[in-house]
Design a protein around this nucleic acid. Sequence first.
DNA 1: ATGGCGGCTCGCAGCCGA
Length: 256
Amino acid sequence: MKLATWNVNSLKVRLPQVLEFLAAHKPDVLCLQETKLDDANFPIADITGAGYQGVFSGQKTYNGVAILSSHSPQEVTMGIAAFEDPQKRVISAVVNGVRIVCVYIPNGESVESAKYVYKLDWLRRLNACLKEELARYPRLAVLGDYNIAPEDRDVHDPKFWAGKVLFSEPEKAALRDMVALGLQDSFRLFEQPEKSFSWWDYRMNGFKRNLGLRIDHILLTAELAKACKSCRIDRDMRAKERPSDHAPVVAEIDFL
DNA sequence: ATGGCGGCTCGCAGCCGA
C-alpha cells in the first residue's frame, strides 16, 4: 500500500501535476493540503477520470484538504472532534483498512503572532483527537503539512531557525507529544540523504540552493511502521515548471 | 535568509504562506 501527501498550494493550478503524480506513482492514497477551493469547485470529475475517488473539505482562498484514494473511503470525518474550527484543515477516512488522517497544521506566522497561539492550541486539540482515534484504529497514518521541522537535520540552517516559527521548542514538543501517542516518523525509519527537505521558499532560489525545511511528514502506528518498506521525498515535482513550494512525500507499506 | 515568489481576491495593492 502506497501512501502519499502533498501540499499543492492551489489545486486549481496544480491539478495537471496531481494527475501526473497519480499516473506516475499510482498511490493508494494521496492526501492534499492547501487546495484553496470550496467544495463546489473541487475538480472531482478529473479525479474520478483518473481512476480515483476523492473526499474533501475546502474553503475559498485558504486551507482546504482532500483524500484521493483508489479504494473507497469509509468513515469519513472532517476536522478535529469536539473543536469548531472554521478553517478547513483536517479530513479523515478509512481506506483499505487503514485510518488516514490528512492534516494541514497551521503555519503560525511568527512566535509573536496570535496565529502562533492558535497553532499551539490547535496542536493540543489535534493530539487529544488522535489519542481517541488511536484507541479505535491500530492501523493509523497521519499525513500532511505539519509546519514543524522536528530536528536540526531537518533544517538547512538550524542556528538561523532556532526559536523561530516552524522550529520553536513548543512546536517541536507538540510533535514529540504526538509521537509519544504511538506514532513514528516513517522518513526516519530509513537511511536518508543529508539535507533532505520537503519545502523550499520560492524566493532567493531556495530550491536550487537547497535552502529548505522538512515539514511534511507521514507518521505511522507501530503496526504500520513495522510493515513500512520505504519513505522518500519526491524532489522531482518541486523541480518542475510552476511547482508547488512543497514536494510530495511517499511511504510504501507491505501488508501480509 | 526575510523586498527579491507565487497564489489568492470581484485585484489594478494587499494578504498570506513558511
